[in-house]
Design a protein around this nucleic acid. Structure first.
Lengths: 224, 224, 224, 224
DNA sequence: AATGAATGAGTATTCATTCAT
DNA sequence: TATGAATGAATACTCATTCAT
C-alpha cells in the first residue's frame, strides 16, 4: 500500500473483511476460519498471505496508525492558515477514521494480552509519536492565536482531548450498533468542540460559535 | 453482601481472585482453571458456585456498578454542604474504585461479544442510571453555585467527564502496569480537575486553585 | 511408577497405548487423536493427563532409559559371581526391553528435530550414564577374568557392543514386522555373543561355547 | 546420471538441496516449501520435477544405494590384489558416502511409515543385494587369506559389520553436529578395524597393525 | 460443598499438493 | 519450464463445562 501499491488483491480483501468482521462482532469472536469462509477462500490461502491472526491485526493497526499520523501532519499544515472550519473538517475526518477502525480503540487493552508485538507498536506509535504530535499541534494552535492557556493547561488539554476522542469512539453503547459514520463523527465532533470551547481565543470566538451553531443549530455557545 | 449477608466464603474468594487475575492478565487470558488453581480449589467446586465464567464477570460488574452508584449517592449528599475538598476527595475514591475494577472499563466492549447479558446490564446501569445520575449531579453543582454554564454546556460537561474518567483508567499504557492505585487516582484527579476548571464559578475559584496547587504544587491555575 | 505407584490408570493406559501404536505405525504417523480414539477417550482427557505429545514420548523415554539403567545395575551385581549363563540371560532381557520400546532406537534421531528436550535427556542419560556404565561393566568383566583385552580394545568393544545392540533392534527390516520378542532377542543375543567371542577368556571359553551351542545347536564356536 | 545424462539441472539442484537440508534439519522438518525457497524456485516448479516429496527421497535413496553398490563392486575388484591399505581406503570412502547421505540411515525406519515404496526398495536393495554382497566380499577376503574364521563366524562378521557401519553414522549424538566428514570417517574406520581385528589372519597382521597405528598412533594393536 | 477426571466443539496453524497462467 | 496463488484435510492443543463420587 505505502511502498509498492499494495501486496495483492487477496491480501487486501483479507484485511478489509477482517476489519469489517472485527468491528461487527469483536476481534475476539472472529476466527481465521470465519474470515476465510466469509471471503470464500480456504484457510490455507488465508495463511498463505498472513503467517498468523496477529499479523492481520498488526496490518490493521499499521493502517490505523498511519492514517492518524497522516491526519496529524495535515493538521500541522492546516494551521498555517488557521481556520476553525478547517480544523473542524479535519476533526470529523479523524473521527470517521477512528470509527472505521473502531475495534482497535475498543479492544486495544484486551488485545495486549494476546499480542505482544501490538503492545510494542502501541508504545512507540500511539503513546509516542501521535501523543507528542497532538501536544505540539495544540501548542501551535495557541501560537497562532486560536487557543489560549498556559503551558500546563494546554498540556492537559491535549492529553484529555485524545482521551475523549478515542473514548467517544470506544463507547461500548455505540460500538456495535450500525450507526452511520457520519452521525457518530458529527456528535463526537460536537462533544470535542464543547470540550475545547473554553480555550478558544476571543479572536476566533465568532467563527467558532458559527460552526457550533451550524452543527447543532438550536443552541448558541454561552460564554464561560 | 449488604442484603443477603454474602453467599459463601468460597463464592467471595472466587470473585476476588478473579478480579485480581483479570486485572493482571486480562479477562481473556484467564481461564476458569487458572482461577481454581490460583485458589487451590477444584474446577468442579468453582462450577458449584458459578454456573459459568460469565456469571463471575457479571458478579464483578454488579459490584463495580453498585460501588459507582453508591459514590454517586454520596456525591448527592455531599453537595448539600458543597465544598471543593469534599468533591475532590470523592473523585479520588471513585477513581480508586475504577482502578480496582479496571479490567471492566478496559475490556467492556470486547466482553460484549462473549457476554450478552453484560451488554444488557450495561445499558440499564452504566448508560442509564449512572449516566443520568452524573448529569443530575452536575446540574445540582451548578445550582449550588460551584459550576457555571448553560444547560447544554453542563450536559456536555457531564458526559465528557464520564468519558474522561473511565478513559483515564482504561488507558492501555497504564492498564497492566502495577501502578499504585494512589498514584493513578491522583493523576487522574488532576486531569479531571483541569477539565472542570473553566466551569468552576468565581466564588469557588479560590478553594479550587488551592486544592489544585496542593496536588501539583508548582503550577497555579490560570484564568481562561 | 517410581515414586508414587503410578499417576493414574488413564495416565498409564495412554502411555501403554502410545507405545503400542508407536511401535506398530511409527511415532510420526500416530497422532494424539489416534491415541485417544484407540483408547475411547476424548482428546481433552488425553490432554488432561499430558500437556503435549512430547510429554508422552518423554515419559516413554523415561521408562525406557530407567529400564536400561536397572539392567545395567543388575549386570554390575551379577558380575560378582560371574557366569556366562547369567550374562546371556541378562542380555536377552535387555534385548527384549529394547524390543518393547523399539520405536525409540528406531526413530530417536528424527525425534530430535521435533523434541528438543528429548535430545537433552538423551545426551545426559544414554550418551552419558548408560554409555559410561557399559564401559565400566566391560572393564569389570575383564577384571573378573571373563574378557581379555587391553584398555583400548575393551573400550572399543564396549562402544561397538552398544551400537550393535541398538542397531540390531532398530534394523528397519524387522522393525515393524510383528516378530515375537523372544525370537528377536534370541537372534540378537546370538549376534552379540559372536561379536564378543574373540574376547572371551580361555577360562570361560567352555561354558561360553556350551551356551552358544544351546542357542544355535548346529554350529560349534571355532577358535579365532 | 550415468546412463541418461541427468534429467535436468533443476532436477539435480532439488535433489542436492534436499539432501543438504535433510541432513541438517531432519527430513521430517524440511517441507517442500523449504526446499523451493532455499533454491529460489517456486513450489510449482518443484512439483513439475517431482510428483511428490516421496519421490525426492526415493531419488536420494537411489543415489545412496547405487553408491553403496558401486563401492561393493570396487571392493570385489580390489580384493584381487588384496591389501590392507586398499581395504581401509575403501572403507573410508564408504563411510564418507554414508555420511553424505546420513539422513537415510538415521531416519530410514521412521520414513517407512510415510513412504511405502521406500520400504520395498530397501528390502530389495539394502537387505537384499548389498547385504548379500557384503557377505560374499567377506568370504572372498577369507579366501584371499586376509580374514580367518569358519562360515558361521564370517557370516556373523559380515552382518555385524554392516550394522556397525550404519549404526556409527546414525548415532544420534553426532548426527546433526556439523562434524567434518573426514573426522567421522576416520573414527568410524578405526572402530570398524578394531571390530575386524580378531579375524585378521596372521599373514596380514603386520600391515594391519601398521595401518591401525597410523590412524591412532599411540596404541599398538594387542593380540587377542 | 468439594473433587478431579472426562468431554467435545472449537482454534490457530501446517503442508503436501494442485492449477490457472 | 516456471510461477505463485489457492486448496483442504489434518494436527496439536484449549477451555468452558459436566458428572460420578
Amino acid at each position: 500500500m505505502s511502498r509498492k501499491e499494495s501486496k495483492s488483491p487477496t491480501f487486501d480483501r483479507i484485511v478489509e473483511a477482517s476489519l469489517q468482521l472485527f468491528n461487527q462482532q469483536g476481534e475476539r469472536s472472529v476466527t481465521t476460519n470465519h474470515i476465510a469462509r466469509y471471503l470464500n477462500i480456504s484457510t490455507g490461502n488465508l495463511y498463505y498471505h498472513f503467517a498468523c491472526k496477529e499479523d492481520i491485526i498488526n496490518e490493521l493497526y499499521r493502517r490505523y496508525s498511519k492514517g492518524m499520523a497522516d491526519y496529524l501532519n495535515a493538521a500541522g499544515e492546516l494551521s498555517v492558515n488557521a481556520s476553525i472550519e478547517g480544523l473542524v473538517s479535519l476533526l470529523e475526518k479523524v473521527l470517521r477514521h477512528l470509527w472505521t477502525f473502531r475495534f482497535i480503540p475498543q479492544s486495544i487493552s484486551s488485545l495486549f494480552s494476546v499480542n505482544q508485538s501490538l503492545q510494542e507498536s502501541y508504545s512507540k506509535i500511539e503513546a509516542g509519536l501521535i501523543s507528542r504530535g497532538v501536544e505540539k499541534l495544540f501548542f501551535k494552535l495557541r501560537d497562532q492565536g486560536m487557543l489560549e492557556g498556559d503551558d500546563v493547561q494546554i498540556g492537559f488539554l491535549a492529553r484529555n482531548f485524545q482521551l475523549l476522542q478515542t473514548g467517544w469512539i470506544a463507547r461500548p453503547d455505540i460500538a456495535r450498533c450500525p450507526q452511520e459514520a457520519q452521525v457518530v463523527a458529527r456528535e463526537g465532533c460536537l462533544s470535542l468542540l464543547y470540550f475545547l470551547a473554553p480555550y478558544v481565543s476571543s479572536r476566533f470566538r465568532q467563527p467558532f460559535e458559527r460552526v457550533l451553531a451550524s452543527m447543532a443549530p438550536v443552541q448558541a455557545l454561552p460564554a464561560v
